[in-house]
Each structure stands twice: as C-alpha cells, then as structure tokens.
Design a binder for these strands. Structure first.
Lengths: 314, 314
DNA sequence: ATGAAAGCGCTAACAC
DNA sequence: GTGTTAGCGCTTTCAT
C-alpha cells in the first residue's frame, strides 16, 4: 500500500478517534476472539490463580475471557453454557460443577475446543488439565511416615467428587505401599471439603478414644477448618503434637501451624498449560486429542513448622 | 400470533437445536448485554467476592461479564479498556490500577456507564462504591483503646494509594479523637500493603527499643505477613502479648491469632450495590449521578482470640 | 398475522 | 494499489 495513504489513514483514525467494532468483525469472520470460562464459583484461590494465568496467555494472543460462575449448580452451569454459546465464544475452559458433562455435547460446540480443568468429567472426550492428586498425597504421606508416624488419619470429602476420590485413593494406595495399617475409624470422607467440614471432621477424630496425631488433609479449606478446631478446642499440650500433611499451599500457608508437608498445586503452570492447549486447538492443531495433562504438585517441607526433609521421588 | 404457528416454531427450534446468534443481534441493536470488568488482579479475595456478587445480579438480568486483569499496570489497563470498548460492552466496572483515570474519558464511552470500585480515581466523574475506610479503622481502634492500650502502632502502605491513605487518616483522626498520643516511630506506611510488607514492617517495629504491643493493621495481606513474622521470629512470651486490630476478615481469619478486632468489608453488598447502580444507569436512570456509595464495614470482636466487646458506634 | 426487505460495521473477494 | 460490493444473522419497519 502507498506509504502516503497509510499515514493519511492513520491520521484520520487518530483524528476521529476511530475504534474498530469487534462485534461487526466477529459476525463477519465467525470468530469472537473470546473464550468462555465456566467455574463453579470465583471465590476459590486455586481457580483465581489459574484464571489469572489463563487470562495473561490469552490476552497476549488477542483473546478476551467471558466468565460465568455457576454457584456449584449444574442447572446454572447449563444456563451459563447456553449464554456462552449464543455469544459464539471461540473456546471454552470448564471447571465442571458436576460429574456428568453431557450438556457439553451440544451441536453448536462441534468446532469449539473445550479444556476441562481440575477434574475429569464423564460422558465427554476433551482435553483435560489436572494435578496428579495421587502422587501428591502419596509423597506427603511419605513425609509423615519418615517422621515415624504409623497410625495416620485422613480428612477428605465425599468420594463422588473427582478430587476427593483421587486423593482418598492416593492415601489408601500410599499406606499400602508403605506397609502401614489403615484404621478405618480415622478416615473421614463426608462433605464437600469445605472449611466447616474440616472443623467437624477433626472434632469427630478427637471424639475417638485414641485419636491419631498425624493426618493427611485433602485440601486447603479442610486444613483451615482442622487448624481452627485444634486452636480453639484442643488443649495446647495435645495439639502441639499434631502433624498435618496437606494438599495446596497458599499465601496464608505460614499460619497453618501443624502442617509439616504440603503438595502445592502448580496453579500458574496449570493455567498456562490450559491456555496453550486451547490456543493450539484454535489454531487447528488437533494432535494428541484428547490430551490429558497431569501436573505433579510441588512437594514442600515446611521446616518452620517442624517438617523434616525426607526421601521423596523414590 | 397464531398459537399453532408458535408451537410449530418451538418444535423446529428444538428439532434443529437452534441457538440465537447473540453477535448478530448485538450488531443490530447496538447492545451486547455484556459488562466489562477491569481489575488490577484476580488473585485478591476482596475482588473475587465482589465479582461473584456482581455476576449473580448481572446474570439475573441477562448480562455477561468480560473480565480483564491489568497486573497492576496502568498501561495494561489502557489496553484492556480499549479491547472492552471494541467489544462494545454496555457498561464497565473498574477497580482502577492507578490514581488517574483520564483514559476513561474516551469518546466511545460517552454513553457507557462506569462504576468505580474500592477506590476513588481522579480526573473523572463516575458512580463509585467504596467501604467507609476511616469509620472502620476508627472503630477497631476504639477496641484497642478500650482494652487500655495507649501506645498503638500502625502498619499500612504507601499513602499514594487511596485505601492506604484513607486508612492512615482514619488512624490519625481516631487517635486524636481518643486523646491518644501518636508515636511517629511506630507508624509504617511503606510498600504496597502486601504480605511481605507486613512481615518487614513488624520486623522494623520489633527492631525498636520498645515496640508497642498493639497495632492497627491496614489490610489482610499485611496482617498475614505480621502474624507470620510474629510466629516465626518473636519469642512466645513476647508475641502472646500482641494485639492486632485489622481491616478485612476472610475465611482464614480464625488463624490470625493476635487479631482482637476486625473491620470486615461487606463484599457481597458492595457487589450487589455496584451491579444495581450499573443496571439503573443502563436503564437510562441518571438520578443522583455521580453517586458515591460508602458502605460501613462490619465491626467484629474476635472473642476467641481475646477480643472484648466495647462501645463502638459512639 | 405473516412476509419481504433494509441495514447494523465489518471483511473478503473481485474488478479495475 | 484502489474502489466496489456482497453478505455474516439478526431486528425492525413497512407492506400485504
């Protein structure tokens, strides 16, 4: 193009303050350069951290995010999905509210890449990015064992949830591999892994005649609940013998005084990986579909709480 | 319309799986039913909680949210803003990255309602929803005073930030109103109010020859940092005399052992209020523009940590 | 009550 | 290298 004309146009753009109408463009080229993000709720550190990373990578590539929270309801998730389809999102990142994902088989989604985050979902084949839950649990369990604990409790959640089940299975497998005896009375797998569930479960544990000192805790919210219960209800001479190994390690980790070992999910990497798979699919590259990326959490020894280095990665 | 035809159409919709193309509709009616959300970062509990509430109210009214994180950079905020304008968002919620908001005077935003959250911004007249920072600080300060503390430290942040400044001023005013002497050496207002700043500031305080026991802490991240420092570096007999009064009270609040009083921001209400003002403006109602809503935080007495009921709301 | 047609702002294809 | 035009899928208006 003529350099002269080029400059004239540029000047006019500035002069008139022209801004492209992306809506019209989208209609024409059948691409909105927007990605729908479907989450059960926003108020979740894991999710925020992952979305921040996804957003950064997407923004670098010219995509925006349309986010929708389902408040944990599959019904709302379906409504949100519909709305995102109507908005012609080019791709979808889903942290599913339920176990079943039949509604993602919508014809309108035929050419829309979907990446599922954090959990696996049944009835649908998609790219998936998750943490290696079993690995993480097994490793931190080794830490407890290395300290000499043999009777170890487990504080988890309802086994119908993907992460709850995986972490539970990691615990069971890990105990077996270590040759430790599993005491069913010290295993708690009820509830939604919320803070209040952690509180109640440690309470139940301490209602036993001989509660164990060592616990594997399946997530961060449970951990806060357990620590809260301990601080408020267990005498100091007893609670100071508590030893926890937990999933997740977040900004307020240093406050969780009984945690010796943590399997910290690599949230930023999960986000980056998710965005990259999505971009690859958007670019038409369907290699390795459906791709399941499982990222190992980082094993942390919390020495300031009394954790001791141990041989992990055997 | 003919009932018969109506049913036929409905059947056809179901049969063919028709879904409206919102992009085409938007182009025609010049409204995208989408709201842009501009934030400095997502990894912030206050913000997420507020966005969750905003999203709920907006979804009930048929709006979606397009979110963009600016990573604290005003430059990125400008880019994000441009992208949102190009996408023809019907309205904007902004938690500004900087103090100055000249870029929101864009001609393309002439008819786009904007609500500013959490901070005030210069160079622009908009509806604004914030917490009553001074009120909150003054009230929790009363709690410390009621316990008999007279020499009280302040842990805050760089006064060029709106909330940092307001909370600092609340502290100064509050001390004066209570007739307490302000010891400049115990006032820390450097940094961005991050966790690491809290850690460093309490360290500095304890490098004084006679550090105070009581502190007002300007936000949650600082609070975690302070508590971490105390737990890791101050001998137990000394730290057990610490008394904190802080802004914010979040899920992990129970772990913050030295907090006796907290001014908990009403995040859900802030979100609801924000969304409602936006919807009002979108409906063409410009009454009270520019509206500044200031919500009082809830004053909490953390009795399980040793907080004692006191006369607030004098 | 139904059908036909214009046009939102853009891009892509084509002719000049 | 530049100018013209069709048409994306919808809503709205006007004619039947």
């Amino acid at each position: 193009m003529n350099e002269d004309t080029r400059l004239k146009v540029k000047a006019a753009v500035k002069e008139l303050g022209y801004q492209r109408n992306e809506v019209a463009r989208s209609l024409k080229v059948r691409s909105t350069r927007s990605i729908g993000i479907l989450a059960p709720e926003f108020t979740n550190f894991f999710f925020m951290e992952v979305v921040e990373a996804i957003g950064r990578v997407l923004a670098e590539n010219g995509y925006s995010m349309i986010v929708a929270s389902s408040s944990g309801s599959v019904e709302q998730e379906k409504l949100n999905l519909r709305s995102l389809i109507e908005r012609n999102v080019d791709g979808l990142v889903v942290m599913p509210s339920g176990l079943e994902g039949g509604h993602f088989k919508n014809k309108a989604l035929k050419n829309t890449p979907i990446v599922v985050l954090d959990r696996k979902v049944e009835g649908i084949e998609t790219d998936t990015v998750i943490s290696d839950n079993r690995y993480g649990i097994k490793e931190i369990l080794k830490g407890l064992a290395a300290e000499g604990h043999r009777r170890i409790g487990f504080i988890g959640g309802d086994l119908t949830f993907f992460t709850a089940k995986e972490r539970y299975l990691g615990f069971i497998e890990g105990m077996k591999e270590l040759g430790l005896e599993i005491d069913e009375s010290c295993i708690f797998t009820e509830g939604l892994m919320l803070q209040s569930d952690g509180y109640e479960q440690l309470k139940k544990a301490f209602a036993l005649e001989d509660p164990p000192n060592a616990y594997v805790i399946a997530n961060d919210s449970l951990h806060i609940g357990c620590t809260t219960y301990a601080l408020q209800n267990i005498p100091i001479d007893v609670r100071s013998n508590l030893v926890f190994a937990t999933f997740d390690y977040l900004s307020y980790g240093p406050l969780l005084r009984y945690a010796h070992y943590a399997a910290a999910q690599r949230m930023e990497e999960i986000g980056i990986e998710t965005a990259q798979i999505l971009l690859k699919r958007l670019g038409g590259d369907m290699s390795d579909f459906p791709q399941v990326v499982m990222l190992r959490p980082e094993i942390k020894v919390l020495d300031f709480n009394g954790g001791k280095p141990f041989a992990h990665h055997l």
